[in-house]
Design a binder for these strands. Structure first.
Lengths: 158, 158
DNA sequence: CAAAACTGGTATCTTATGAAACCAACATGC
DNA sequence: GCATGTTGGTTTCATAAGATACCAGTTTTG
């Protein structure tokens, strides 16, 4: 009845976290030095660039804490990269959008991000990557289903 | 010459971080409520259980910051779960080991961790998991190789 | 339409994490 | 044996993140 020995090195949640942190740190460093952006800020720009969206929606899509989103938004508005327009459908929320400056920054940063991604993943067989991402999504679904009955908080780095 | 559009949802570093955080948070919550342990503390116990080891070695294996390791060690020693013996080979470092209480706690926690792991990954085909972990390790190797020439800091959650 | 319950967003407080400075114990070179 | 540099570990300080409480608008229900 005894369990198999637990070897941290083979413990999947550990491996997942390990790799994620490795990649995140590498990328975070690049964003920081290249554009002076934190991960949440970068995420916000990326999501808003895909179309006008409210903070709540950003939180839902990225799983960032709403406080984190709020702070990132304030910072970016302060830097003139983001603007808000009153949401006609809901007086509480504002629709976020990129300013010209924001759009321009996004124009610079997006290719850079894709390049970074490529630098890491280019050496891996495309099929393998496809399967890998599919597995990630599967894990998401399962974990969300489990977490729904327990607790379900949030993230940080890329 | 224009890049493909960047969709955050398909950006692999984001997906990786997303899933990692999801899993980490679920597990962290369990450790916290069940055993009053933080992730670094739990990691420390897991690694030390595999054999006497110094803090520096823990840091190398888990990629935890040495400060984080230090704090976790202090906390666990304070709780009587860990003890240190002078390292005969090096007067600066101590060898960490589990106390009886620590060993007992580990005996409880390890199966629980494996069970949690199982709960998430049991529904996925074993081959798929094997490939998934292999890809994680491949990404580690690549990222480390890249990061070696740039920056290379540390982690947090499981 | 007023009271109750809810939701988007922000301000405040607490805690976790990393950077940097620091101390002690090695290791080398001379 | 002693200056110089390095490494294990802790303390201190700055900051990022989440929990909580809160406010202002919104929906519900009676």
């Amino acid at each position: 009845m005894s369990s198999p020995p637990l070897v941290l090195d083979d413990f999947i949640p550990f491996r997942l976290s390990f790799t994620s942190n490795l990649v995140s740190d590498t990328i975070a460093r690049a964003y920081e030095t290249l554009f002076g952006l934190t991960i949440p800020e970068w995420r916000l720009i990326a999501v808003v660039a895909e179309g006008g969206i409210t903070q709540a929606a950003v939180g839902a899509r990225t799983r960032m804490d709403k406080v984190t989103v709020s702070r990132a938004a304030i910072a970016l508005v302060g830097r003139g990269l983001l603007h808000r327009v009153h949401n006609p459908d809901d007086g509480r929320s504002h629709l976020l959008g990129l300013t010209d400056a924001g759009r321009e920054l996004h124009g610079q940063i997006a290719p850079k991000a894709l390049e970074l991604e490529k630098r890491i993943f280019a050496r891996i067989d495309p099929d393998e990557i496809t399967r890998f991402v599919a597995t990630l999504r599967r894990i998401d679904a399962i974990t969300l289903a489990i977490g729904a009955s327990a607790g379900e908080p949030g993230p940080h780095a890329d």
